[in-house]
């Protein structure tokens, strides 16, 4: 199995990460990501024939919370780390209007 990263993969990653790279950066990252993936692929050598797919390791189920409202952050606390704020809102520079996600 090979995991050669192509320029197209990099462009796709740029898109879903919402970043823009220069050609130079793409040329740097393509071999770097390839070598990272090749390294991780070592795991593929482990025999997992009899190991069930696992997404949880604790075996715990049904951790539920009663529907009760508890005190939360004040507006000041919530905005404490905001790089910019306006009238109690977090403020983000740049146009985001047209990149609305399809959620």
């Amino acid at each position: 199995m090979s995991t050669i990263i192509t320029q197209d993969d990099i462009k796709h990653l740029e898109k879903i990460s919402m970043i823009r790279l220069s050609d130079e950066e793409r040329n740097t990252f393509t071999p770097q990501l390839t070598s990272i993936l090749e390294y991780v692929e070592k795991l593929g050598e482990v025999d997992t024939k009899d190991v069930p797919e696992t997404t949880q390791v604790t075996g715990i189920v049904n951790v539920l919370r009663e529907d009760e409202v508890k005190p939360t952050f004040t507006q000041e606390q919530a905005l404490a780390n905001a790089p910019e704020q306006e009238r109690g809102y977090f403020k983000i520079r740049g146009s985001l209007k047209n990149i609305a996600a399809d959620a």
């Binding site: 919370r65 529907d67 508890k70 939360t72 952050f73 507006q75 009238r87 809102y89």
Partner: peptide, 26 residues
């Protein structure tokens, strides 16, 4: 009454912005 994964109030209608948040929903 509360949000899906935290105990902040789910009644956000016409509330002052960012007054019903916590580490989970932020």
């Amino acid at each position: 009454n509360s949000k899906m994964f935290c105990s902040c109030s789910a009644d956000f209608w016409e509330k002052e912005p960012n007054t019903q948040t916590c580490p989970v929903c932020l």
